[in-house]
Simulated assay, not measured.
Amino acid sequence: MCTQLFDPKVDYVFKNIFGSEKHPRILISFLNACIKPKEPIVEVKLKNTEITKEYIEDSFSRLDILAKTSTGELINIEMQRADERNMVKRSLYYWSKAYISEYTGKGAYANLPRTICINVLDFILLEEEKFHNKYLIQNASNNNLLTDTLELHFIEIPKMKDIDESDLLSIWVGFLEDPNNEKVISLERKVEELQEAKEELARISRDPKEAENYRMRENARNDRLNALLSAEEKGERKAKLEIAKSLKGILSDEIISEKTGLSLEEIKSL
């Protein structure tokens, strides 16, 4: 019987595939595809591998992946499916936390590592055409690089319209979007790490215990989304009431109702 695969964009599943000590080749392949370093990454050490039951159930928990390369670079990866209107600043915050995590207070600042944050997003964030954009600290007048210590990547999955077989990052994004995509399936024979990721996804999807964890994480996410929507609705209603109050005496209650969407009873009570 064919197993229905979990969505690899669910952060719990994403971390189990790309942040597994049992499958370092998957993460190395993804990092080389995204960062495209001059010298390919050949080894990584994961620094946050544990996923507790409380971590899964807590909708505010961030299931990110933090890895250190053999050359000392720190790389933080986050899979984010919902736009919470704070992605850029949150990425800078996570970068700063990772950056200072190596500082013991005794060494020189010069020893602080090059730190990279990779944000994989299932929504459109930036006013850029490409699905993958990299940001650095550069001189505003001549684009000279100040330092390569900070590097932020944003991968916007919805912007990629088709898989480019010549671009490994495009292939990985295609896998995240739809692991059963015909082109992804055909590429599994060519890209060993992709096949390994697909096999691990299938294993997780067949495991009853993992299925329960998947369900709990999805429930936690839905609870958080509902809370955010409720907060937005309350904020919108408050703004409408303030607008209606300012228009009282200027426009008729009927027109105010039409413009704000509030009922006549609500407007008359102001």
Rank of each mutant, 00 (worst) to 15 (best):
D167M: 08
I51L: 08
L125Q: 10
E233C: 00
Y94S: 11
T3F: 15
Y135W: 13
I41Q: 11
Y94W: 10
K106A: 13
S101H: 09
S29L: 10
N181E: 05
I243D: 04
N180C: 08
Y55Q: 14
E200L: 12
Q138K: 15
F30A: 05
R189C: 05
P208T: 04
N16E: 10
N213C: 06
G261Q: 11
P179M: 06
G235S: 13
I124A: 08
E43M: 13
K130P: 08
S170P: 08
R224K: 13
P113N: 09
L176S: 03
K36Q: 15
D122Q: 06
V88I: 15
D207G: 02
S246G: 04
S257L: 02
A220E: 04
I17W: 01
V120L: 12
S246D: 08
I77Y: 05
Y93P: 01
K259C: 01
I65A: 04
P40K: 13
G249C: 05
K97I: 14
A67H: 05
L169G: 06
E218I: 14
S246I: 00
M1C: 09
L194Q: 03
E102R: 14
N48H: 07
F123D: 07
K22M: 07
I56G: 05
S141P: 01
A227N: 12
K159Y: 11
S205W: 09
F175M: 11
L194S: 04
F131A: 09
A211T: 06
K198G: 07
Q138D: 08
K97F: 04
E212W: 09
E84D: 12
G261D: 03
Q195R: 14
E266A: 10
L112P: 07
P158M: 06
E199V: 09
L27G: 09
I100R: 12
R90T: 03
R217S: 05
E57I: 10
L169Q: 07
I77C: 04
A140W: 12
F6G: 03
K183D: 01
E54G: 07
W95G: 13
N86W: 07
N142H: 09
L5A: 12
D83L: 10
E192S: 15
W172K: 05
S252V: 00
D122S: 13
E210G: 00
A227I: 10
Y93Q: 14
E50K: 13
I163E: 00
K161W: 01
I100P: 00
M160W: 04
R224Q: 13
M87R: 06
N111S: 15
